[in-house]
Simulated scan of single mutants.
Amino acid sequence: MLSREQIIDTAVELLDAGGEGALTVRAMTERLATGSGAIYYHVGTRDELLDTATETVVTAALATKPGGASVTPEEEIRAVALALFDAIAEHQWLATRLTLQIIRNPIGPVTVGIFERIGRQVGALGVPQAAWFDATATLVHYILGAVSQNARVDGDTSDVEAGVDREEFLGAASRAWQELDPDDYPFMHAIVDQMREHDDREQFLTGIALVLDGITNLR
Rank of each mutant, 00 (worst) to 15 (best):
L49P: 01
L180V: 12
V12A: 07
D159L: 13
F85P: 00
V110E: 02
E30C: 08
A63T: 11
T52C: 06
T54G: 09
R175W: 10
T29F: 06
A83F: 02
A176M: 10
L84C: 04
A176Y: 09
V127Y: 03
F169G: 06
L32V: 12
V58I: 14
V192N: 05
Q6N: 07
A69V: 13
G67D: 13
L49F: 04
G18D: 05
Q149E: 09
K65I: 08
A60L: 08
D134K: 09
R201C: 04
G155A: 02
E55Y: 07
H91M: 00
Q149V: 00
A38Y: 09
L100Q: 14
V58E: 02
T157S: 15
V58G: 03
T56Y: 06
L210V: 14
A124Y: 12
V80N: 01
L84G: 03
G21H: 11
I102D: 02
G163S: 03
Q121I: 06
R78N: 06
V80Q: 00
N105F: 11
S158V: 05
H198M: 11
P128I: 07
F85L: 07
V160C: 07
Q203Y: 14
E55N: 10
L23G: 01
D181R: 09
T45P: 01
V80I: 06
L212N: 00
E5Q: 14
R120F: 07
D47K: 12
L84R: 01
D159G: 09
L139D: 03
A27D: 11
Q129C: 12
G108W: 03
V112L: 12
V127M: 02
A60K: 15
W132R: 13
H198G: 07
H91A: 00
L170Y: 15
M195R: 15
I107P: 01
I107M: 10
R104Y: 06
K65N: 14
L100T: 12
E202H: 09
A130P: 09
H91K: 03
N150H: 15
A22F: 00
R219M: 13
H42C: 05
E74D: 13
T216I: 08
D200R: 05
Q203F: 15
L15W: 01
H141V: 09
T216A: 04
L205T: 09
L218V: 11
T72A: 10
D47S: 14
A176T: 07
A173S: 13
T96L: 14
T72N: 04
A27S: 15
A162D: 08
A89H: 10
Q203W: 14
S3C: 10
S3R: 15
T29I: 04
T29H: 06
H198E: 11
R175D: 15
R31C: 08
A81Q: 02
